[in-house]
Amino acid sequence: MIKGLLGIIDKMRIEVFPTKDYVEPPQQTIFVQLNPEKYTMKHNVVFCEGQAMGTTGSDLKFNKIEGEEVTFDFLFDSSGVVAPGKIKSGKGTPTFEDLKGDVVNALQPAIVDPFGEAATVEKEVEAFKNLLMGYNGDTHQTAFLRLLWGGYSLSCRLKSMDIEYTLFRKDGRPVRAKVKCLFKGTVDYKVMVARENKSSPDLTHQRVVEMNDKLPLMAESIYQSNGYYIDVAKNNKLLTFRKLNTGDSLQFQPIK
């Protein structure tokens, strides 16, 4: 509430992780200099297109749903008009000193020395780029990221970065830059499988026999029909479908 009264805005932050687990606290957290004015989200469904010779239409068959893509524009300004962004270790939980600095910046007007030389923005942009897309020689990967802003959260990786310099000193060194970043959502394989819970009968399933399991009931739960358990017994070379050995692994072939 105090922050709201003083006009202090919660800054968008980017958490940087070395691995895809997202379990440990982030190595570093980037607090952007200015919150983006907008962002663009893209969701893409991929189809396999089949078109018979001599026809005018395509038979679209579902292939996959690609991970979410989101584009943000980040502004960097070293002229002194805007308070700089921050890069902090770990989750970067604000301290009392951080809050005090934000209060001072909120209460006092921006004062720029008209005779002084503005600092360049190159160092801040380079540090930002290295954190988001720098190659880690230990993991042989670029960073795993988590975008956090208000209620928006996305585990992702940087796909592309465009840097546009728009304001310069007399010597040609830039003091303002707009960095357009395209992030692509990423999900750990185990988490993805748990979320999707694929149980379609046109996929191959593998089940381990547990105590009191019955083949007709197992087949019915997968195929939604009680007419396939004989085929399953044949495919798994079972002598009888009436008795299953606990611990055996059975394959349930897809329905063609």
Rank of each mutant, 00 (worst) to 15 (best):
Q251Y: 11
S58V: 15
L239R: 09
V209I: 15
S221V: 05
A83W: 04
Q27T: 10
C181A: 06
A118F: 03
G7E: 03
L203Y: 11
G90E: 07
N236Y: 04
W149R: 06
G92W: 00
D77T: 06
D248A: 14
K180W: 02
V187S: 07
E66A: 13
M161H: 04
L217G: 01
S200A: 13
H205M: 04
Q141W: 05
Q28A: 12
S78V: 07
V121L: 01
T55S: 14
V193R: 10
M53N: 10
Q224G: 15
Q224P: 02
V191K: 09
I222F: 10
R195A: 15
R242H: 11
E124G: 01
G92Y: 01
I14Q: 02
N130S: 13
E126Q: 11
T166Y: 02
Y135M: 14
P36M: 05
L145G: 02
R146D: 09
A119F: 06
L75S: 08
H140W: 09
M161Y: 02
T139V: 13
L145F: 06
K64P: 05
L75W: 05
R242W: 10
P36W: 05
G92S: 03
D73E: 13
I65N: 09
H43L: 13
H140N: 14
K214V: 08
S155I: 07
N105H: 08
T166R: 02
Y22T: 01
I30D: 02
E97M: 11
F144G: 01
A194V: 06
K88L: 15
M192N: 10
L154K: 00
D171Y: 07
N44M: 11
K64A: 14
D113Q: 03
S58P: 09
V104Q: 08
K214F: 03
M218K: 02
A127S: 13
Q253Y: 11
P254T: 09
I87W: 03
D202I: 15
K61E: 12
L244Q: 00
V82L: 04
K159L: 05
G57F: 12
A194D: 14
G150N: 07
E210F: 04
E97I: 13
N245L: 13
T204S: 09
N130H: 08
E37N: 12
F128E: 03
L6C: 03
D73S: 14
G85W: 00
E49I: 12
P254N: 08
G227A: 14
A219V: 01
Q108K: 09
Y189G: 11
H140I: 10
D113M: 00
V45N: 07
D138K: 09
I2N: 01
K123D: 13
A110M: 05
E97K: 11
Q224I: 07
L158S: 12
L154M: 13
T240I: 06
Q51L: 04
P26M: 00
L244S: 00
M161D: 00
K237C: 05
L217E: 15
S160R: 05
D102Q: 10
N35F: 05
P18N: 04
A194M: 10
Q108W: 08
E69A: 12
K170S: 13
Q141N: 12
K86N: 10
A127P: 03
K198Q: 06
L99P: 01
R169A: 06
